[in-house]
């Protein structure tokens, strides 16, 4: 009841008497929100609309303002050849684009899958009481704190085909029969990217899951112990269901982040078709190949794809963010 304080009744019942206090607070709230709303409109809302608009034009990097509306041409257009056959062109029939989509989705789901498993393991370890727990927690924060670019470079060096320590280690342990050019070969490039990403982001996952674990009251486990429930069963019947809300939120945060991946791939495996994601491809078109409009179309599709996936996830997973209607 105390938290209901200061709140006028919900809409519908309609407060017939709006006191000076309520009015003053509503007025203040409005002014307090204005700077944020303007800032977000200028850096997010307007640029988003402009990007979408560009995708329907023939804009080029040096001719942003002379851009003309060409409709859906960047997405799909056709040409009737003299022979009478119809040739489809545009983003929706672009093999390179669909390859990038596939790469992105494959990357995002694989990395989040492994991060969730490893994050859960790390979180369970950190949730146990043992000597040196503080050191472990400090240690796992290090990958999180290292800038992505820096970790890409560090791993690029470790994965180096000739002088990389990982090849050396693999050969010494007998896991590899010859040195592998991890980042350069098409077959291993995606694995390399996944390894670095999982290494870098598992800590975030672990911390979010740990926070969820720590909200589970200890006495539930004590009760289960007394009832003689096997620890493995305890995990699946108690821990997992109770940590599920935290887990679902952590997964969507990570998934959205993975779907927009750019920097790691740009640095670790530049120009590799096997790892080129939507973001990398779109930026290439926008700024390197001077296909500004085409790149905009790719950005727009990327945005749409992520928006649809997110809504599906929230809807199917019944995820509740703390919307904070208190």
């Amino acid at each position: 009841m105390a938290t209901e304080a200061l709140a006028p009744p919900a809409a519908g019942a309609g407060p017939r008497i709006k006191s000076e206090l309520t009015q003053q607070r509503l007025r203040a709230a409005r002014w307090f929100l204005v700077p944020m709303l303007i800032a977000l409109a200028v850096v997010a809302g307007w640029p988003l609309l402009r990007s979408i608009w560009f995708s329907f034009t023939d804009a080029s990097l040096n001719n942003l303002y002379g851009a003309e509306w060409i409709g859906f041409g960047n997405y799909l257009r056709w040409q009737v050849l003299e022979s009478g056959t119809v040739r489809w062109r545009g983003l929706l029939v672009d093999g390179a684009w669909w390859n990038a989509v596939w790469n992105t989705v494959r990357f995002a789901f694989t990395s989040v899958f492994f991060e969730t498993i490893f994050g859960m393991i790390v979180a369970l370890v950190l949730n146990a009481e043992f000597r040196g727990r503080g050191i472990v927690r400090a240690a796992i924060l290090i990958p999180w704190a290292i800038p992505t670019i820096v970790s890409a470079k560090m791993w690029a060096w470790m994965l180096n085909d000739q002088f990389g320590i990982l090849n050396d280690l693999g050969m010494r342990l007998g896991l590899l029969s010859q040195k592998v050019a991890w980042t350069a070969q098409a077959e291993t490039a995606m694995t390399a990217v996944l390894v670095v990403d999982i290494w870098k982001t598992t800590p975030f996952m672990a911390l979010l899951i740990l926070a969820g674990l720590q909200m589970i009251p200890k006495d539930i486990y004590e009760a289960a112990d007394i009832d003689g429930v096997h620890p493995v069963k305890q995990f699946f019947r108690i821990t997992l269901p109770l940590v599920r809300p935290a887990l679902m939120v952590a997964i969507i945060f990570r998934l959205l982040d993975a779907l927009r991946i750019f920097d790691l791939i740009y640095v670790l495996t530049p120009n590799s078709v096997a790892t080129k994601t939507m973001s990398v491809l779109a930026r290439e078109n926008l700024f390197d190949f001077d296909n500004f409009a085409y790149g905009s179309a790719q950005s727009t599709l990327l945005f749409l794809l992520i928006a649809v996936l997110t809504m599906l996830y929230i809807w199917l997973g019944k995820v509740r963010f703390d919307g904070g209607d208190r």
Partner: peptide, 24 residues
């Protein structure tokens, strides 16, 4: 006055204070 009344009248010394701020 921390909470608005939904209906009715509140009087201090015979004066209606329905909408008056707490500090006043």
């Amino acid at each position: 006055g921390l909470e608005d009344i939904t209906s009715g009248e509140m009087l201090f010394d015979g004066k209606v204070v329905n909408a008056l701020a707490p500090s006043k």
